[in-house]
Design a protein around this nucleic acid. Sequence first.
DNA 1: TGCAAAAATTGATTTAAATCATAATTTCAA
DNA 2: TTGAAATTATGATTTAAATCAATTTTTGCA
Lengths: 232, 232
Amino acid sequence: MKHCESCSARKSGIFCNLNKESLNDVSHHKVMNHYKKGQTIFFQGNPPMGLYCVSSGKIKISRSGNDGKEAIIRIAGPGDVLGHRSLFSKEKYEATATVIEDSSICFIEKNYIYSTIQSDPSVALNVIEKLSRDMGIAEKKSAAMFQKNARERLADLFVEFSEDYGLKVGDLIKLDIRLSREEIASLIGSAHETVIRLISEFKEEGILVLEGKTILVKDLEKLRLFANYNDQ
Amino acid sequence: MKHCESCSARKSGIFCNLNKESLNDVSHHKVMNHYKKGQTIFFQGNPPMGLYCVSSGKIKISRSGNDGKEAIIRIAGPGDVLGHRSLFSKEKYEATATVIEDSSICFIEKNYIYSTIQSDPSVALNVIEKLSRDMGIAEKKSAAMFQKNARERLADLFVEFSEDYGLKVGDLIKLDIRLSREEIASLIGSAHETVIRLISEFKEEGILVLEGKTILVKDLEKLRLFANYNDQ
DNA sequence: TGCAAAAATTGATTTAAATCATAATTTCAA
DNA sequence: TTGAAATTATGATTTAAATCAATTTTTGCA
């Protein structure tokens, strides 16, 4: 069994301030599961029984509309917590979590989470801080859907990906995340054909380089400019 | 000085579980201010010094895009807390809070908030629950911007207003909130002309009744249908 | 390895909603 | 009370992006 103490994802999680002893306690209350690409961790509509702590891999959190159109809320990676929102608001899951890259995810039981929050103010504060940050991101995204056009939203996403999943390859930044054009479209709220067209535009303009279907960023500054300003 | 114990807004706030003694303590650490319509409580970009607790009135929380286009994140009313998100995430305000109806708002200092959260787990849990609920609302809204058209989003908004600000007037529901068409447009992410056109369509279809510029809902069920209700 | 299914691409067409333009109505301060 | 400014309302025009359609490429599994 992998121990929390040695989990590379711990430093950014909600248990980051715990001492060795408390962390050991958490370790004994978690169960680690391994998921293959395509598997579902939880479904929209189900009741939460605890929370999930991502050790490795990538997961998409999505909501399906009544016409079947999927909207991807966010992508979660190592150190991220899943299902906490519904757990704490005492509602059913309002989104579905699907693994997009083989993942190792720890499950921690509801009761244990609540008792830890109540007994350790630092955990409570971490949860509050995390929720607040996520809230800011959600609000920003919601405003962007209205204030920015598809090109700006896509540039936004690629800037974000460069920061979160960017690997240096020569003077390029390789985006180490495999999403279909359809999924990218669901992230920025557009049709997949639009994403394809915009990607080839960015390629024409020397901002992106394509290597098969992986995307490499050639000119991050230009991308940032496109994401932030509205001049065309 | 108005005491928290007698504040009609308390029951829904983050201090709702406090005993008389603790509540008295909160009372002595707050300052109540009165704001006139149009005044600003805090500006996007400023650093938060504490949080605001709405006793009465209504406030709009908005973000301005780089082209000056305003997006209204939400409307806050009695019992709502403002500025907590930025306070807890230790970021600058990412939105501006403007009073749209004369309001009485209590300010509570940052340090006091933090010490209360750390000493009283029930307050921490209330904050966590509130943030989680708000987060769900924000995510739902963000998905709706993509999955629903302007008509559905406007119907959504009026259903929400019926629940939050609806007053029974005969067999109609009067929406007790005064927003310009422009502000309504900024709430659903559309142009104000679109809102005007949709409102008159709804009037034609016998769903809404206009009395001057106040809106009354005549057929809430039909409105719900139009909103394409998708709650869990 | 081959082949069917899925995904990506490109082009043509449509459409929802933005923008532009103008007029009517309301609001509010002098 | 009145007149200018703001808001609401309607119509015409434009446009960004969706949808539809057809082809090529990639993927994964039998």
